[in-house]
Simulated assay, not measured.
Amino acid sequence: MEKALDKFLKNWYNNKDVVGILLTGSHAIEMNHKSSDVDIRIFLAGDSKTTKGLIEIDGFKFSYLVRSHNIIESRFRKEFSMNNRFEATTISMGRIIFEKDGIVSELQKLANYYQKSDFIIRKIDDETLKSNIYLLYNYKSYLETLDEDSTYFIYTYMSFMKISLTFYSHFLNFEIVSDLKLEKLFTNDLFRDKCNWSKFPDEEFALLWQNCISIGKTNKYHLSKMFDFLQKKIIKFNTKNDAFSWKEQ
């Protein structure tokens, strides 16, 4: 991989606007497999368009993101406000290949700060909680009209499960993790440690959620189990006689 990496980096080293290059992803933490992409972050001076690209060199797939280093701090802050540390995780776990004036090192220090900081605790009012439960109830009601063998049953069922996870994560003030990393979040202690992720705070939910998406378990019985669990843990919505209000702008 190192020879292919040198070929990829050759042109970037000659670019006077490049102030840093970072190896990220599974290769950076030595948890890659033979089909893993080589993830590279390239930081430019000044303001410039962000570029995302893919290129294959000597059988290795390089996935690269070129971005002005000036916008990274705002991305850390914006994502953190939404209970997300994706950018901070990516930068903090990276291996510096090249930098000018310590720019990448400073970005990593800032990323580590966000990684170690607790999310702002926000009280979610009952009206908002009920509106989310009502949304899930609508999904549940629709799913109950479908045959479990229907293509649209499995699609809508998985949408219901995604909303359930996001909703409950917000309720617990837990990090919102990319769909592509959920398996590692729930099942890979080593990867979670390297990413500085906490274990999901409600083990009962984590086990139930994984069971509900297991092969052969995507059915109306497990749909009801998840819906009932969330009502029990968060707030009860009376489907026969209830209401909630909100202020519109």
Rank of each mutant, 00 (worst) to 15 (best):
M1R: 06
L5K: 05
D6M: 11
F8P: 01
L9G: 02
L9I: 09
K10R: 14
W12R: 10
K16G: 01
K16T: 11
V18A: 03
G20A: 11
G20C: 08
L23Y: 00
T24A: 15
A28W: 02
D37M: 00
D39N: 10
R41L: 13
A45R: 12
K61L: 08
I72K: 01
I72N: 01
S74L: 15
S74A: 13
M82P: 00
F86M: 02
E87S: 06
T89P: 00
T90V: 02
M93E: 15
G94Q: 12
R95N: 15
D101S: 09
V104T: 07
S105L: 08
S105H: 08
E106M: 12
L110H: 01
A111W: 14
Y113V: 11
Y113N: 11
S117L: 14
D118M: 05
D118T: 05
I120T: 10
R122I: 03
I124G: 00
I124N: 03
D125F: 07
D126K: 02
D126H: 05
D126F: 04
E127T: 10
T128M: 09
L129S: 03
Y134D: 04
Y139C: 06
D147T: 10
S150L: 07
S150M: 05
Y152I: 12
I154M: 02
M158K: 13
M161H: 03
K162S: 08
I163L: 11
S169K: 05
H170V: 13
F171C: 12
N173Y: 08
N173T: 13
F174H: 12
F174S: 04
E175H: 08
I176G: 00
D179A: 11
K181Q: 06
L182F: 04
L182A: 11
E183R: 15
K184V: 01
K184P: 01
K184I: 00
L185T: 10
N188M: 06
L190D: 11
C195I: 09
K199M: 04
P201G: 03
E203C: 04
F205N: 05
L207S: 15
L208G: 06
L208N: 07
W209F: 14
W209R: 02
N219G: 06
Y221R: 08
H222D: 13
H222I: 03
L223G: 04
K225Q: 11
F227M: 12
F227P: 01
L230R: 04
Q231H: 09
Q231C: 11
K232R: 13
K232P: 00
I235Q: 08
N238T: 07
N238S: 11
K240H: 15
S245D: 12
W246N: 05
